[in-house]
Design a protein around this nucleic acid. Sequence first.
DNA 1: TATAATTAAATTGTACACAATTTGTTTTGC
DNA 2: GCAAAACAAATTGTGTACAATTTAATTATA
Lengths: 151, 151
Amino acid sequence: MENEDFDGTVYDCLKIENQLCFPLYAASKEVIKRYRPFLEKLELTYTQYLAMMVFWEQKSISVKELGAKLYLDSGTLTPVLKHLEQKEYITRSRSREDERVLIAEITEKGEALRDKAVEVPTQMACCIRLEPEEAAALYKLLYKLLGSIEQ
Amino acid sequence: MENEDFDGTVYDCLKIENQLCFPLYAASKEVIKRYRPFLEKLELTYTQYLAMMVFWEQKSISVKELGAKLYLDSGTLTPVLKHLEQKEYITRSRSREDERVLIAEITEKGEALRDKAVEVPTQMACCIRLEPEEAAALYKLLYKLLGSIEQ
DNA sequence: TATAATTAAATTGTACACAATTTGTTTTGC
DNA sequence: GCAAAACAAATTGTGTACAATTTAATTATA
């Protein structure tokens, strides 16, 4: 009855098509790629755009807090924030209460960028052709997955 | 009736919590991070592991074909394949019919790695605590999303 | 209260990821 | 049959992403 030529070997679990991680990885990359032409007009990379979304909600934040929100560490955020500072979208300075803490704060120019950025989600929605219920279901499942892997 | 202090401004679409792309990006990264301890035992990075999964299904493949399967270009694959060659999991050589084409082929050592790798999906399943139906729904939605963004 | 432990960023080193360009080969069109 | 177009990898340059280590500041404790 057992026949290795049919599907059903011990190696089936190693097939790309049987992985959940692969479409997750690929879809994430492909979606981010689609952002590029829209974000270029704002002089932002995708990671910088994520950071700016935080600054538009909250004028200033520490690297640690920002890292907790974006699932990124200082090794990634330090250069990202330096780039945003170069573009004058934020300023970086040490906290007076605790010199270990770096506080990044949005500038006028950064605030002004928001009015251009507000077009991006609409433009992106055209690229991602999912029904609203499907998008909602996907959103929910992704956050459930994210929650389930926090150690 | 309109009041900018309540939710419902034009800027709501720019909130992280209203993005589908963010949990996609974050979940992808967090899942890949969880692979690391398991893949270290195989001396593989996540991208190298994806490539090896292809080689375990198909002994040899061109860079172009591999790129189409993994959504990666030669700029990414060239160094990845060079690393796999250094570890002696694959060989790289030009096609005789068409010298432009590079053919990567799995070695005995690469084949042997499969028996160790077969443990990885089971070990990972413990980290990702989704119900089978949820995982299936997520899988389906991710492939639908992926299909919907191919230009 | 001096020192040890802890903490927050920055730094270092490795490995992608991708746009854009280059190099070498093959195919097309005239 | 040969120049032009197309093609496949490789290369170059920029920007993450993250583990591990370092540096500097703060807190805890003996």
